[in-house]
Design a protein around this nucleic acid. Structure first.
Length: 887
RNA sequence: GGGCGGGUAGCUCAGUUGGGAGAGCAUCGGCCUUACAAGCCGAGGGUCACAGGUUCAAGCCCUGUUCCGCCCACCA
C-alpha cells in the first residue's frame, strides 16, 4: 500500500504549466518533414493578431488538438501548422485608436511610419493570442509559426496576384462597391452585414417636362436624388401607358432627366416609378449601364456631399437627408413619408452604415475558380462534415459574384501594380519595375491599395508550407487532412482556399472540412460585449482547469448544433476530472510496480467483465473520433470511467485487494487494474491531456510521455483484449442481485449500516453456482450478513421481495418489516410490470405482427412477455402473503 | 423572397441502418461504507411541438401546420 502517490484532490494549474513546458521543450509537437508513418496535417485557422481568446477559438482549438493528439497516438506523423493573420482593417483600426490616444493619426505619420507603428504594435502584443492558445493545451508545431505578412507568405501573395492578373482572372474596373466611410475603404459583399431597421419611404414628386403633372417616385435615401440621372418605369405598367412626357425635372437640382422603361422595376412596389442613381445603388448602376446613363457621385468617400450636390455640397450625408426632405417639403414636392422596415448594410468591422459607391477597384473573376471548387466536392476529393453544409456551399459557389480584393487602407499586402504616367500602361510584376515596358518612361506610380486580408488567408494551406518553393513539407503534408472551422467563415475562408488551392496546387487544400458549431451563452444568445454575456475562456480555465473546460466543450460538440455554454456545466466535468484523479489515486495505492495482464483462466469475473467493456470502449472511442463525433467519444469515456470502472469494478475488487496479499487472484486483479487504467488514460488523453499525463507519470512502468504512447489497438483494431460475453452475463447477474437488494434497502429506509440476510431462490443451477462463487463480492457490495442460495422452495416469512432475471430475492426483515410499506412497494412494482405487459400483449395479439415482423423480433417479444408474466406472478404471490401477514 | 437547423424529463441535450424512451444537472429520501462529500446508495419525473400518412411496428421515414434560431438575397 502506498498512500501518498497522489494528492487528495486534483489541482490543475501547476500541472498544466509543468506539462506544457515539458512538451514544448521536448519537441513533442514537432512534425517530421519526411517519414514513413502516415502523414496527418491540419492548418490552424489563423487568429487575428489583434485577437483575444474567445469561446469560438477555444472550441475550434480543442477539436483540432483532439484530432492531432489522437492521430499521434495512432502513430501518424502529425503536422499542426500554427500562425496568425494580419487582419488588415481590424489591426489598422486598433493601431489608429492607439495613435488617437496619443494625439496623432496615421496621416500625420505618413504611410511608411504608420506601417512601422503597426509592426511594432504586433511585436509587442501579437503573441498574446498565441500564449492563450497554449493555455488550452494546443499541440501546434510552434517553431513553424507563420504570419500572413511575413516575407515568405508575402512572396506567395505576390506570385498569386501576378499569375491571376496574367491569366486575366484579376482585373481593375469601375463598379459599385460597398464603401465604409469610417474605415475609409471598399468592402467585399461578404463583409457587409445586413440588418433590419425602421426607416422611412419618402414619396417625391418629379414634374414632367413639356407636359402637365408629375410622376411620384419613392425612396428610402432621399439624399441620393441629387445624383439621379433618370426615372424608370416598367414597360408593362398600365398606369403609365398613356404617358406622353419623355423627361422630368429633377427637383432641387433643376436638371432635366429622361424617363426610361426597364423591366427591373417592380410593379408592386411604391408608385411603380423608380428614381435611378447609378453612382449610389447597385441596381441603378446596372440600369444605368443598360441605358447608357451618366453617373453622378454626390456622396464622397468621406461621407460628405460632393460638389455635384449643388448647395448641399460639404454636408454630412445624414444631415443632407434632413435638408433635402425639408427643401422638398418647402417646394411642395414631398407627397408623404411612410414608415418602412428595410435592411441596411453595415460594416462588419465597425458597424457603420455602408454606402454603395461608385469607384475603381480590383476584382477577382471567380466563376472559373468556383467551378473547380464545386467539382472537387461533388466528386468527393473534399468532404464537408456534417454533410448539411454541402448544399450551402454549392449554393454560394453557384451564385458567387466577382470578389472585390482592393482595400483603401495601409496595413496589408500592397497591390503590385504600377501605372505609367507617360502612357497610362498598367504594370503588374514579380519584381518592382523601374521603367515602363511599353514606352520606357521611368515615371511609374504604384497602386496604393492593399489586398483584402482574406486574399492571403486563401493561400494559407500551401503558403505556410513554403510555396512557391517545392518544399518537402508540401510534398509530405499537402493536401492537409482536415480543416476544422466554424461555419461563420465557410465562405470568407474555406471556399476561397478551395479555389486557390485547386488553381495553384492542382489539388484540394484539405480532404475533410469539419464544420463545428457556434458557442452561445446559456440562453442560446450569441455572446457579445454589448450584451455583457461573454464568458471568458481564460477565466473558466482559471477556475476549473483546462481539462475540465476541454471536456465540457467536447461533450457538447454534437454535430450541427450550437453549444450553449455556462460555467455550471464546466463544474460537472471538473468533478469528472477529479473522479478520474481519485480513481487513479486508489489504483496507485495498490500498484507499486507494473503488473502484466494475467492469463484468462486466472482472471475473476469482474476482471474479465471490465476488460470486455474496455475492449468495446477502445473500439467506440476510436470510431467516434474517426467520424468527428467528439461528443460521443466524451460521453462513452465518461460513462465507462465513472459508472463502470469506478462504480462497479473498483468496488468489486476491494475484497481481492484487501484479501490474501500476493496470491494469484490478487495478482491477476492488479494486472487487470493496471491495464484498464493504462489504456483508459491513453483513450482520454486527446481530450484531457494534462491530467492524463500527470497520472501517467505516476503510473509505475510507463516510459516516456503519454502523448507519445500508442493507442491500445492498432489501425485494424487488433488488441490482446477480447470481448467476453460470458463474463458480461455473469457480472450482469451479480449486479442485478446487488441492485435489487440496494433497491429494497433504499425503499424500505433500512440503514446502510445494517447487515442483511438474503435468500436467493432459483432452479437454475448455473445461476446458483455463479452466485455461490461470488458470495464475498455480493455480501460486500450489498452489505450482507449472509446470502443463502437455494432452489425454489419455502419462502422466508417476513421478507421483502425482488424478482430479477432468473431468480427471486428475499431480504429477511424479521422484526423490522413494515408490512404495509412492503405491500405498497410490491403493488407499485406490479403496476409497472402491468404497463410493460400491456404493450407486449397487444403486439402478441396482433396477427399481422406475428406474421410480418421478423422471427427474431417476435421471439424477443415472446421471451419478454414470458419473463414479465413470471415476475408478475411471483410478486402477486408474495403480495398475497404480505397482506395476510399484515392483518 | 430563398435556404438550413431545431421543438424529447424542471433545465441543457444525446438518441447512426424503424423493433423495450436515455444522460448530465436540478429535485426528493438515506449515508462521512478503509480513492473521491468535487463523493456514495436509492427514488420520482416525458401524449418525443401539433395533425395526417406509410408500416405489423414511428422520437426516427413522408406530407402539412405552428413556434424558435440562423444563413443567404440587388425588396427602390
Amino acid at each position: 500500500m502506498n498512500e501518498d502517490v497522489l494528492a487528495k484532490g486534483y489541482e490543475p494549474h501547476e500541472v498544466e504549466r509543468k506539462w506544457y513546458q515539458h512538451w514544448e521543450a521536448n519537441g513533442s509537437f514537432a512534425a517530421r518533414e519526411e517519414d514513413d508513418a502516415p502523414a496527418y496535417s491540419i492548418v490552424i485557422p489563423p487568429p487575428n493578431v489583434t485577437g483575444v481568446l474567445h469561446m469560438g477559438h477555444a472550441l475550434n482549438i480543442t477539436m483540432q488538438d483532439i484530432l492531432c493528439r489522437y492521430r499521434r497516438l495512432r502513430g501518424d506523423n502529425v503536422l499542426w501548422m500554427p500562425g496568425t493573420d494580419h487582419a488588415g482593417i481590424a489591426t489598422q483600426n486598433v493601431v489608429e485608436r492607439k495613435l488617437a490616444e496619443e494625439g496623432t493619426d496615421r496621416h500625420a505619420l505618413g504611410r511608411e511610419k504608420f506601417i512601422e507603428a503597426v509592426w511594432s504594435w504586433r511585436k509587442e502584443y501579437g503573441s498574446a493570442i498565441i500564449n492563450q492558445l497554449k493555455r488550452l493545451g494546443a499541440s501546434c508545431d510552434w517553431p513553424r509559426e507563420r504570419f500572413t505578412m511575413d516575407s515568405g507568405l508575402s512572396q506567395a501573395v505576390r506570385k498569386v496576384f501576378v499569375q491571376l492578373y496574367e491569366e486575366g482572372l484579376i482585373y481593375r474596373g469601375d463598379y459599385i462597391i460597398n464603401w465604409c466611410h469610417r474605415c475609409h475603404t471598399a468592402l467585399a459583399d461578404l463583409e457587409v452585414e445586413h440588418e433590419e431597421v425602421d426607416g422611412h419611404l419618402y414619396h417625391i414628386r418629379y414634374p414632367y417636362v413639356g407636359a402637365e403633372g408629375d410622376i411620384v417616385v419613392a425612396t428610402t435615401r432621399p439624399e441620393t436624388m441629387l445624383g439621379d440621372t433618370a426615372v424608370a418605369i416598367n414597360p408593362d405598367d398600365e398606369r403609365y401607358a398613356g404617358l406622353t412626357a419623355a423627361q422630368v425635372t429633377l427637383p432641387l437640382m433643376g436638371r432635366t432627366i429622361p424617363i426610361i422603361r426597364d423591366s427591373y422595376v417592380d410593379l408592386e412596389f411604391g408608385t411603380g416609378a423608380l428614381k435611378v442613381t447609378p453612382a449610389h445603388d447597385p441596381n441603378d448602376f446596372e440600369i444605368g449601364r443598360r441605358h447608357e446613363l451618366p453617373s453622378i457621385k454626390v456622396i464622397g468617400d468621406d461621407g460628405n456631399m460632393t460638389e455635384e450636390a449643388g448647395h448641399f455640397a460639404g454636408m454630412d450625408r445624414f444631415a443632407c437627408r434632413e435638408a433635402v426632405v425639408a427643401a422638398l417639403r418647402e417646394e411642395g414636392l414631398l407627397v408623404k413619408i411612410e414608415p418602412l422596415k428595410h435592411s441596411v448594410g453595415h460594416c462588419y468591422r465597425c458597424k457603420t452604415v455602408v454606402e454603395p459607391n461608385l469607384s475603381t477597384q480590383w476584382f477577382v473573376k471567380v466563376k472559373p475558380l468556383a467551378q473547380k471548387a464545386i467539382q472537387a466536392v461533388e466528386d468527393g476529393r473534399t468532404t464537408i462534415i456534417p454533410a448539411t453544409w454541402t448544399q450551402t456551399y454549392y449554393d454560394w459557389m453557384d451564385n458567387i459574384r466577382d470578389w472585390c480584393i482592393s482595400r483603401q487602407i495601409w496595413w496589408g499586402h500592397q497591390i503590385p501594380a504600377w501605372t505609367c504616367e507617360a502612357c497610362g500602361e498598367t504594370i503588374v510584376a514579380m519584381e518592382d519595375p523601374t521603367t515602363c515596358p511599353h514606352c520606357g518612361d521611368n515615371r511609374l506610380t504604384r497602386e496604393t491599395d492593399v489586398l483584402d486580408t482574406w486574399f492571403s488567408s486563401a493561400l494559407w494551406p500551401f503558403s505556410t508550407m513554403g510555396w512557391p518553393e517545392q518544399t518537402k513539407l508540401l510534398k509530405t503534408f499537402y493536401p492537409t487532412s482536415t480543416l476544422v472551422t466554424g461555419f461563420d467563415i465557410l465562405f470568407f475562408w474555406v471556399a476561397r482556399m478551395m479555389m486557390m488551392g485547386l488553381h495553384f496546387m492542382g489539388d484540394v487544400p484539405f480532404r475533410d472540412v469539419y464544420v463545428h458549431a457556434l458557442v452561445r451563452d446559456e440562453h442560446g444568445k450569441k455572446m457579445s460585449k454589448s450584451k455583457g454575456n461573454v464568458i471568458d475562456p481564460l477565466n473558466v480555465i482559471d477556475v476549473y482547469g483546462t481539462d475540465a473546460f476541454r471536456f465540457t466543450l467536447t461533450a457538447f460538440a454534437a454535430q450541427g448544433r450550437d453549444i450553449k455554454m455556462s460555467e455550471k456545466r464546466v463544474e460537472g466535468y471538473r468533478n469528472f476530472i477529479n473522479k478520474l484523479w481519485n480513481a487513479a489515486r486508489f489504483a496507485l495505492m495498490h500498484l507499486t510496480k507494473p503488473v502484466d495482464l494475467a492469463r484468462r483462466e486466472q482472471l475473476s469475473v469482474p476482471d474479465r467483465w471490465i476488460l470486455s467493456r474496455l475492449r468495446r470502449l477502445i473500439e467506440d472511442t476510436g470510431r467516434a473520433l474517426d467520424d468527428y463525433r467528439f461528443n460521443d467519444a466524451a460521453a462513452t469515456l465518461y460513462q465507462f470511467v465513472w459508472h463502470e470502472f469506478c462504480d462497479w469494478y473498483l468496488e468489486a475488487i476491494k475484497p481481492a485487494l484487501y484479501g490474501n496479499q500476493g496470491d494469484d487472484r490478487q495478482q491477476a486483479t492488479l494486472g487487470t487494474l493496471y491495464r484498464v487504467l493504462h489504456d483508459t488514460l491513453i483513450l482520454l488523453h486527446p481530450i484531457i491531456p494534462f491530467v492524463t499525463e500527470e497520472i501517467w507519470e505516476k503510473l509505475p512502468g510507463t516510459r516516456g510521455d503519454i502523448m507519445r504512447a500508442a493507442f491500445p489497438a492498432d489501425a485494424a483494431g487488433a488488441t490482446d483484449i477480447i470481448e467476453d460475453p460470458a463474463a458480461e452475463t455473469a457480472m450482469q447477474l451479480i449486479m442485478d442481485v446487488i441492485t435489487g437488494i440496494r433497491n429494497i434497502r433504499g425503499e424500505m429506509n433500512i440503514a446502510p449500516a445494517m447487515k442483511l440476510n438474503v435468500t436467493v431462490q432459483t432452479d437454475d443451477a448455473d445461476i446458483r453456482r455463479q452466485l455461490n462463487d461470488h458470495q464475498d463480492l455480493v455480501a460486500n457490495l450489498a452489505r450482507l450478513e449472509q446470502m443463502v442460495v437455494a432452489p425454489v422452495g419455502a419462502k422466508p416469512r417476513a421478507a421483502a421481495t425482488s424478482v430479477i432475471e432468473g431468480a427471486t430475492l428475499f431480504v429477511s426483515l424479521e422484526g423490522i418489516i413494515d408490512f404495509a410499506q412492503e405491500a405498497a412497494r410490491l403493488t407499485k412494482e406490479i403496476g409497472k410490470i402491468d404497463n410493460e405487459l400491456a404493450t407486449l400483449n397487444k403486439k402478441l395479439g396482433n396477427e399481422d405482427f406475428l406474421n410480418k415482423a421478423p422471427a427474431a423480433v417476435v421471439e424477443k417479444v415472446k421471451r419478454q412477455q414470458a419473463a414479465f408474466s413470471e415476475k408478475r406472478e411471483t410478486l402477486e404471490t408474495h403480495l398475497a402473503r404480505i397482506e395476510a401477514l399484515a392483518s
